[in-house]
C-alpha cells in the first residue's frame, strides 16, 4: 500500500484535486453511458407492449 492513511490517500501528494476531479468526471460519464441504454430498453418495452394491447383492442372492430 502506497498510502499510510485515508487523509494521505485523498490528498494524493498535493494532487488530490486533479486526480479526484478526473476520476469523478469519468464516473459521471460512465454512469450516463450505462444508464442510458437500460432506461431506453425499459421505455421501449413499455411503449411497445402498450401499442400491442391497443392494437388488439381495436382489432375485432376493424
Amino acid at each position: 500500500m502506497e498510502f499510510s492513511s485515508l487523509a494521505e490517500f485523498i490528498a494524493m501528494g498535493k494532487h488530490g484535486f486533479y486526480v479526484w476531479l478526473s476520476y469523478g468526471l469519468t464516473a459521471v460519464i460512465i454512469a450516463f453511458v450505462v444508464m442510458q441504454p437500460i432506461l431506453h430498453r425499459r421505455r421501449l418495452l413499455k411503449e411497445q407492449a402498450q401499442r400491442l394491447r391497443r392494437e388488439k383492442r381495436n382489432a375485432p372492430s376493424a
Partner: peptide
C-alpha cells in the same frame, strides 16, 4: 492504492 507514485509527476500520474 498499490502502484508507486511517479518519480517526476508524483500521484497525478494515477
Amino acid at each position: 492504492l498499490y502502484a508507486p507514485a511517479d518519480y517526476q509527476q508524483g500521484d497525478s500520474f494515477r
